[in-house]
């Protein structure tokens, strides 16, 4: 067999192996995605209800009393919690997220505020370092976040630092899971708490269980036990934690579906490549045969 067709055959073999790997990774990601999606959906109702409660509460209390609600007069220092992935091979997932973060820093704070990031996931950490954003903490990200306790260290740290006035604002950057084919990077303000209806986090209007919002305006009295301050002190850090937890879950679901689609595309591309290479191989083989026949014919013609 001539050299050309042997080379092509070798390439076909290697592409076939790659295809097997990407196919396997696609299946693994699909399984992980299913799990992550079910977790996102089951935790959404909690974060929805927490938000509802906050929205009820802010109408009944003086929001300027609690440090979590006070808007800073001048924003100097900003912290961003960047929730990315540990592994690559998920398309442009991390790149788009980091670009979104950088863009939103530029848009909201053109007057060059001091920005630090707290990363969760190694890819985000590497990207942040590449873009020269100062990194204050890096938290290990589990492949599957088992419970809200896993992210408690993060929320604990940022609430503590926020109350100590280390940061004027805290944001969380994550990838919103819209559907298995659509994920949107999003940057959201965590602190100070903006008591507005949050349209994004966990609010991909799950049409069917949309509960009618209850208006609390009609209730003249609203009792807090033991008292307003204590309830808020217990509740608001919880709100921060829930939001981070929800963001992590959304990111996880997005990551796995992004990877699944990246791998599906890779598998398809490998299939196309194999077809092309097979065609090229057959042509080369046919050319070889034709060439040999021509040689034989020429040889016998020379003998006559």
């Amino acid at each position: 067999m001539p050299q050309a067709s042997r080379d092509i055959q070798r390439r076909i073999k290697s592409v076939k192996n790659t295809k097997k790997i990407t196919k396997a990774m696609e299946l693994v990601s699909a399984a992980k995605m299913r799990k992550a999606v079910s977790r996102v959906l089951s935790s959404r109702s909690y974060s929805d209800l927490v938000w509802d409660t906050v929205l009820h509460l802010v109408k009944k209390i003086d929001t300027n009393k609690h440090p979590f609600f006070i808007e800073p007069k001048k924003v100097k220092k900003v912290a961003v919690v960047l929730i990315s992935t540990n592994r690559g091979l998920c398309g442009s997932f991390n790149a788009t997220l980091v670009n979104k973060v950088i863009k939103s820093i530029e848009i909201h704070h053109p007057e060059r505020v001091e920005t630090s990031v707290i990363t969760c996931g190694t890819k985000g950490r590497d990207e942040a370092r590449r873009h020269n954003i100062s990194l204050v903490a890096d938290f290990h990200k589990e492949d599957i976040t088992a419970s809200s306790e896993d992210i408690r260290p993060i929320s604990h740290m940022i609430t503590k630092d926020f109350l100590a006035k280390k940061y004027d604002k805290v944001f969380v950057a994550y990838t919103d899971f819209m559907s298995s084919i659509k994920q949107v990077p999003h940057v959201k303000q965590l602190l100070p708490i903006v008591p507005e209806i949050d349209e994004r986090l966990g609010h991909i209007k799950h049409g069917k269980d949309k509960v009618e919002k209850i208006s609390v305006d009609s209730f003249a009295e609203f009792i807090f036990e033991p008292d307003t301050r204590q309830v808020l002190d217990a509740f608001l850090p919880r709100l921060v934690e829930v939001q981070i937890y929800q963001s992590v879950l959304e990111s996880e679901a997005s990551e796995h579906s992004a990877r699944m689609f990246a791998m599906r595309n890779a598998t398809d591309a490998a299939g196309d490549m194999i077809d092309d290479l097979t065609l090229a191989y057959n042509q080369a083989r046919q050319a070889g045969i034709t060439g040999e026949i021509a040689e034989i014919a020429a040889g016998s013609a020379a003998l006559e």
Partner: peptide
């Protein structure tokens, strides 16, 4: 059970937020 003690809630309770 709240931090202030046990309570039993019946319909039409006054609005209350408790730990």
């Amino acid at each position: 059970s709240t931090t202030m003690g046990q309570i039993t809630v019946l319909p039409n309770h006054i609005p209350l937020v408790s730990q």
